[in-house]
Design a protein around this nucleic acid. Structure first.
Lengths: 226, 226
DNA sequence: AAGTCATGTGACTAGAAGGTCACATTATAA
DNA sequence: TTATAATGTGACCTTCTAGTCACATGACTT
């Protein structure tokens, strides 16, 4: 986490540095992000940089922190359409709202997604906690869905979590890849065509998960007996 | 492509260099792969390296070439179980056989997958041709499936291609991520649990795509009218 | 043996990386 | 005004990078 010296800085100066850092990580990922460039672009000296942060990782961890806080705030404002909704509808809403958030903070989201999903595995030890949160949240969702009778009770929870995780990563990666070629992310995301494609991706997962569990388990058992 | 000097080398020496290069790209990706390390580990001099290859990209392009050739050869040996099979069964077979290939050449597959799927977008201009091949093959598959009546004719082909591409990338990424923590990739891949998970991923996509097209299109139209 | 040409070599270049440190500047308190 | 503490600075360090080049070695020809 940043040193006290950084937190004592006037807010404007903090924001400049953070903005520059966000763009740097978004463009280059973790490994290729350059502290020299961050220092240049934000108009501070090399010495100051290391008086504000422990090292490069420290800066990025601060971004993760910021991302979490901003996202929580964003979601707190946008209440789900209905209080007692179907789990899949809720998941759909969550993904969609998550993408709206990304369209409001495109560079921050891009930086975090890129590093966590792509470079992540090499720095897994540092970022693994961040991932576990998502996994846990999904697990609770599935368990609740089973309780509600929306998902077949014979479903192996971990398997379903894995499917949803892979799926939601796939959507993030798709959006990340496509959006990098677009200059206006917000406009692109709101295009009917983009929305249609994302809906389709979600629909395929939902439909596959919702109705086929028992069928799938049955198929697997038949396979095993062969 | 490698220079003539490289091709004149005794096969054993060629293989050593290629093996070292494969492991380097598999471990570090394109950007962070180091020619110095390749040179050290394969016991040749820096000068020789640049007498064999134009530059770092040249080495990797040669690996792509190798990957394509080996994979084609591998698939040529393994004939599909039945000649006139359902498109989704064929897709399933293709993905599975592709993974068997990966288990035989784990490092090569890892190197290619990593660079094409992760670093790929930054070097898109070089690797885009490689990607187009896959896209085209998928497009033909879908079109054939429509002709055969296996997929609803009202399906937007490009959309289905996108879904299948995202899907198959997701599976590759999943396998890549998981397998990096496993020392014995081949054994891991053949574990019933691993196979079950991959089957499940495939099943979700297949089920979502196969039966829901017209339903989905109908849903989308209803959404639009709102 | 002399000449030719392909191949091998490692010190070298220029640049960039992350990080340090002795010193300069500024702000606060007495 | 002076003393003290906090903050700012850029030259510098080491280590790495991709790539070059003048030269050495070895093989084949005449």
């Amino acid at each position: 986490m940043p040193k006290q010296t950084f937190l004592n800085l006037p807010e404007e100066k903090q924001n400049t540095i953070i903005d520059v850092a966000i763009n740097e990580f978004a463009e280059y990922g973790f490994e290729s992000a350059s502290t020299n460039r961050i220092v240049e672009k934000s108009g501070i000296s090399k010495g100051s940089f290391y008086q504000y942060f422990e090292d490069k990782l420290d800066v990025f961890m601060h971004l993760i922190d910021l991302f979490g806080k901003e996202k929580t705030e964003f979601f707190a404002d946008k209440h789900p359409p209905s209080a007692n909704m179907d789990t899949f509808t809720y998941f759909h809403w969550m993904i969609k709202t998550g993408m709206e958030f990304e369209s409001v903070h495109p560079h921050l989201a891009q930086a975090i997604t890129r590093v966590l999903l792509r470079d992540g595995m090499y720095y897994g030890k540092y970022f693994i906690e961040e991932r576990k949160k998502t996994t846990l949240a999904l697990k609770m969702m599935i368990e609740q869905a089973i309780e509600r009778g929306e998902v077949d009770p014979s479903v192996e929870v971990d398997l379903a979590v894995m499917v949803m995780e892979t799926w939601s990563n796939a959507i993030s990666t798709y959006v990340l890849n496509e959006s990098m070629q677009e200059e206006d992310f917000m406009t692109w995301l709101r295009l009917p065509k983009t929305q249609e494609r994302i809906d389709k991706l979600l629909y395929v997962m939902e439909y596959g998960l919702r109705n086929t569990e028992s069928q799938f388990i049955a198929d697997a058992e038949i396979e095993e007996k062969k």
